[in-house]
Design a protein around this nucleic acid. Structure first.
Length: 492
RNA sequence: GCGGGUGUAACUCAAUUGGUAGAGUGUCAGCCUUCCAAGCUGAAUGUUGCGGGUUCGAGUCCCGUCGCCCGCUCCA
């Protein structure tokens, strides 16, 4: 209960301070779509940049890409999305429970086999297999359930709705005058395919040799049946993906290496290590393309949830595109004189989820000494890593006096080349500190009357609330050093 | 999509058995103030999610719709 409350508080703070708003709020909102406000966009950009830097700038063999959201419909046929990115569902009208129609039938078949009705089981299996073509699949599956009188596992009732298809890909019309199925295109449900279809382009233009990677950040869209829990599961979201092309046989080793490298990146964002863990996918739950898969999970207020997925995709994707497009997706290895389709190790992280993780990890309510002797009050503070904080430093005149304002504004302007700095003179000094605490601003610089004489300012630390006098000319290196050496407090 | 709950100011919440919407916080202006949400004065903000209906009268009752929460389901 306390943890649910905690997410609610984070949602409220996000709205009140301008991190995240619901989309189209004035019209009642659009389900599972969110907008980033003035602080949110800065935080998102900094996370985005941290990932891009870690991936491309720090790896000579990883190159960037920005592929289009709209792609040829055959891409999604080849990738398997058209066939398996949708599920036939059926509801038990009595218990209101929902089941996947194909799985109900499969369970029915295995029961038949247990009872020794092999022949009948084979027959149903072949019906199930041939139910394939998507247009009539729902009717076919429904017919099997009716024919076999398959009952609901929970209620035992035989009272079903129709079988309905829940396709998770958005569609749109391509071309102004176009109509009909021929002109339909999908809005990408993942960014990975944009990388695969550009594999040979990247290879031919960058002089890269296997192993090498292609990194991309971009929007993806999924028409989720249920999309809830704030920005954790959205219909429009942003992915940061890197596909690493390796020689077959080295894939497992590379997969292990990327596991370690990726979790280290999460820690570099200042996420407390105790809140991060790996979660391996059991073999029988693997996606159709994957040989090995692991999630990096974070302990959100709603429990342990996936933030990033690392997959050994084998040659499934390049192989499928080679088959469907008729274009060679092979790599010629100059040292071994071999020709092969590379295996792919994928790292795929949700930017929005990552941002939510950063917010959740930073959010704290502290009891601090209150106004009167012996009392306490609650301080809400986002202990964000300084390199991610939307505002790096606040600059305040201690009071609204012209000479203090002048110096404070000058310091603000000077620092703005290097840092995100915000000037504030409204309200008492304590109130300004607390405002910045809620925005996650790690440093507040205050100009007082002594500053005019000694050319020093007071720098107040967000986390410890301690103050230090620093020469104005040394603020820049002071902030740099602090940003570099910051680490989160465990506990809590 | 189904079932249950819910929707009042930017935020957190009030508003008797249906009787003309308020408080705190926040925001803004001014005064005061030499370092952690201080004080004083003043100000702005709502077609009570939206649309219908019942009624002399609806934030309160009914229907629809949208959003949110919980459960089911799903999660490449």
């Amino acid at each position: 209960m306390a943890s649910k409350n905690r997410l609610d508080k984070i949602v409220s703070l996000s709205k009140a301070r301008g991190f995240i708003f619901q989309s189209s709020e004035i019209y009642g909102g659009l389900s599972a779509v969110y907008d980033y406000g003035p602080l949110g966009v800065e935080l998102k950009r900094k996370i985005n940049k941290a990932w891009w830097t870690a991936m491309t700038r720090k790896h000579d063999n990883i190159v960037g890409l920005d592929s289009a959201i709209l792609m040829h419909p055959k891409v999604w046929k080849a990738s398997g999305h058209v066939d398996s990115f949708s599920d036939p569902m059926i509801d038990d009208k009595q218990s209101k429970m929902r089941y996947r129609a194909d799985i109900l039938i499969e369970e029915h078949i295995s029961k038949l086999r247990e009872k020794g009705n092999e022949e009948h089981a084979d027959h149903i299996q072949s019906l199930l297999d041939s139910a394939g073509t998507r247009s009539s699949m729902n009717e076919d599956l429904y017919a099997i359930i009716m024919e076999e009188q398959i009952k609901s596992p929970d209620s035992g009732a035989f009272d079903w709705t129709d079988v309905r298809q829940f396709n998770l890909m958005f569609k749109t019309q391509f071309g102004a005058t176009a109509s009909g199925e021929e002109s339909e295109v999908y809005i990408r449900p993942e960014t990975a395919q944009g990388i695969f279809v550009n594999f040979t382009n990247a290879l031919n233009t960058t002089r890269q040799q296997v192993p090498f990677g292609i990194a991309q950040i971009g929007k993806a869209f999924r028409n989720e049946v249920v999309a809830r829990q704030f920005v954790f599961r959205m219909r429009e979201f942003e992915q940061m993906e890197m596909q690493y092309f390796v020689k077959p046989g080295t894939d497992s080793e590379q997969y292990q290496r990327w596991k370690e490298e990726r979790i280290a990146w999460h820690k570099s964002l200042g996420i407390r290590p105790s809140k991060l863990r790996f979660h391996d996918h059991p073999e029988d739950k693997l996606a159709h393309y994957a040989k090995e898969a692991v999630d990096i999970q974070y302990e959100f207020p709603i429990g342990w949830q996936e933030v990033e997925g690392i997959h050994n995709r084998t040659d499934f994707d390049l192989g499928a595109h080679q088959e469907h497009s008729g274009k060679k997706m092979e790599y010629f290895d100059p040292s071994s004189q071999e020709r092969y389709i590379p295996y792919v190790v994928e790292t795929s992280i949700g930017l929005d989820r990552c941002l939510l993780m950063v917010l959740c990890d930073a959010f704290q309510e502290e009891e601090v000494p209150g106004d009167k002797e012996g009392t306490t009050e609650t301080r809400t503070v986002l202990k964000l890593h300084p390199k991610l904080a939307p505002v790096t430093a606040g600059v305040f005149p201690l009071m609204k006096k012209p000479e203090l304002k002048e110096l404070a504004e000058k310091i603000k302007v000077d620092l703005s080349d290097e840092f995100d700095v915000q000037y504030d003179e409204k309200g008492s000094i304590g109130k300004r500190y607390r405002r910045q605490d809620e925005a996650g601003t790690p440093f507040c610089l205050t100009v007082d009357f002594d500053s005019l004489e000694d050319q020093k300012v007071t720098i107040r630390d967000r986390d410890t609330m301690k103050q230090e006098r620093v020469e104005i000319s040394k603020i820049d290196p002071y902030l740099r050093a602090k940003i570099k050496t910051w680490s989160p407090e465990e506990g809590q």
